[in-house]
Structures are given as structure tokens and as C-alpha cells.
């Protein structure tokens, strides 16, 4: 199975709000090991601090604790995403994100975005990217995916880390939304203040990206 092949095909049964995992797929990553390495090197003298923008996953908490002995903050922006999609209030999504991320600046060594930017429009994306740059310590890293096919997204994915280069993907239904496809130059422009350190286009047309501040 090609890596991240899930990204190309929406689940036909996925129509309602996220209620739980419906199926699982495994995927390998080329860039995630670089993220771990970057965070570890970033915090040689102090304990790393990581911000997770997805749901809490027990296995991931254990992984980060064992691997990086880090402090992990969980701010699940997908909750705001789903609520806004369901209520038709996507215009207010940027404000909801800002409220949720009202944390001190220069606080994190690493931020996990997963595929969050696929679900939000360019304006909201710009606001969020700016906020992530503010939260990140100089030298810190942001890890995320960007789909390159303009499909309707009908499901969310929980990324369960199995090893430094392998994830188990658990899908759950989402209120459908058209993917916001970003070209490489759009990504660079959106993440002003951060630089693209690694960018790998996978066979599944998903761009796995690592940013550094």
C-alpha cells in the first residue's frame, strides 16, 4: 500500500460529526524522524515542550515521554474545526483558534499540525500559521501535511505514532469540507517567519513538511 493513500479517497459513509475511529491504515513517514531530531537538538539543556494540535492519543503521549522526556500540551483544534463546519460558522474559525492558543510566545520546541491546514481556508490558515510562529521558540520545528488534490474531505485522521517513522491512521467521519490545496509557494508565504526545512511529496500527493523558526 502506498503511504498516505488514505488522503486520496474520502470515505463514502463519513457524513456526520466525528464520533470515533471507523477504520485504520498504516503509513510511513520520511519527515517525522527529522522533527524528532530537531526537537531533541533544540532542547539539549532543557526539557522539550511540544504542542499537539490534534486530539490526545495515549500512545503518542507515551511515545513522546519515552523518546523526548518532554512536556506535552494538547490543544485539539479539530474540535473547533468540526464545530464550525457543523454550525456553518467557519468565518469565525480564526478567532476560535486564537482563543484556544492564547499561550505565551516562544514557548514550544515543536508543534504538531498533522493535516489541519487541509481543512481551513487561506485566510484562517494565514492567521494560524502566524500564531504558530509566535508560539514557537527560535529554532523550533513545526510538522504537518498538505494534500495536493482538491477533494472533499469527509473524515478526520488520528495519527497514532507507532515508531519514529510509522503511524497508524484512525479515521472518523467529519462534516464534509473542500480541501484547501496549497502550492509550495502558498505554503512558504503563509508560514511567514518560518522556513521550510524539509518537504517531501509522497506518492499519495501529500506533501509532508517540516518548518523551522
Amino acid at each position: 500500500m502506498s503511504v498516505f493513500s488514505w488522503a486520496q479517497k474520502p470515505a463514502p459513509e463519513a457524513t456526520g460529526p466525528s464520533t470515533g475511529a471507523v477504520d485504520e491504515v498504516e503509513a510511513t513517514s520520511k519527515v517525522f524522524p527529522r522533527f524528532l531530531s530537531a526537537v531533541a537538538q533544540q532542547a539539549l539543556e532543557t526539557r522539550p515542550v511540544i504542542l499537539e494540535l490534534g486530539p490526545v492519543v495515549g500512545a503518542n503521549v507515551e511515545f513522546f515521554s519515552d523518546r523526548l522526556a518532554c512536556k506535552l500540551y494538547i490543544e485539539n483544534l479539530y474540535l473547533d474545526l468540526e464545530e464550525a463546519a457543523r454550525l456553518g460558522t467557519r468565518a469565525g474559525l480564526a478567532e476560535a483558534f486564537l482563543r484556544r492558543l492564547a499561550l505565551a510566545g516562544d514557548m514550544f520546541d515543536g508543534i504538531l499540525c498533522w493535516d489541519l491546514f487541509d481543512f481551513i481556508d487561506a485566510k484562517t490558515g494565514k492567521t494560524l500559521a502566524g500564531e504558530l510562529a509566535r508560539l514557537l521558540k527560535p529554532g523550533g520545528a513545526v510538522y504537518g501535511f498538505f494534500g495536493t488534490t482538491p477533494i472533499e474531505l469527509c473524515r478526520y485522521t488520528r495519527y497514532v505514532i507507532e515508531s519514529e517513522s510509522r503511524f497508524r491512521l484512525q479515521h472518523s467521519p467529519a462534516t464534509p469540507v473542500k480541501r484547501n490545496v496549497l502550492l509550495t509557494r502558498d505554503i512558504t508565504k503563509m508560514f511567514e517567519g518560518l522556513s521550510v526545512s524539509e518537504s517531501v511529496l509522497l506518492k499519495s500527493s501529500t506533501r509532508e513538511t517540516l518548518f523551522r523558526r
Binding site: A21, V56, V57, G58, V61, S65, A69, Y73, I74
Partner: peptide, 16 residues
């Protein structure tokens, strides 16, 4: 810290 699937959590986890 053990977290079962389905649990809701918001905040920080420090497993020093």
C-alpha cells in the same frame, strides 16, 4: 500517564 481512547483532555502532560 495512561489515556484511553475516547478520553477528552485539554491542558499539558508532564511525565518527568
Amino acid at each position: 500517564v495512561a489515556i484511553s481512547e475516547g478520553a477528552h483532555f485539554r491542558g499539558s502532560i508532564d511525565m518527568q
